[in-house]
Amino acid sequence: MDTQTVKYLANLGFLSFDENELEKLAEEMNGIIESVSFVKDYNAEYDPLNDNLGAHLDDLREDKAEPDYPTDKLMRNAVHSENCFVVPKVME
């Protein structure tokens, strides 16, 4: 793993690091990867059906609407305006 890859991962995770941090992280990532990468050689394939918990339609939630949750409670931990969450403009 090089700093380019760490930067790519950081972009996907919406994190940013300076060059020094990227170098240090690349080293740490390599260390972690080295310690776990032997799993690649394990002789088995994942079978999604093996994780089947046997749920059927009746186990799912009934379609019923409940009374509205108070909007002021929803907003109180956020920067809000006109009952909306405020977000700086999105760059296209």
Partner: peptide
């Protein structure tokens, strides 16, 4: 990541099973 998911994540899931 698409390049790694089979070797890492899905492999780990297989081991878990």
């Amino acid at each position: 990541m698409s390049d790694n998911i089979k070797d890492y994540f899905y492999k780990a899931m297989a081991i878990r099973q």
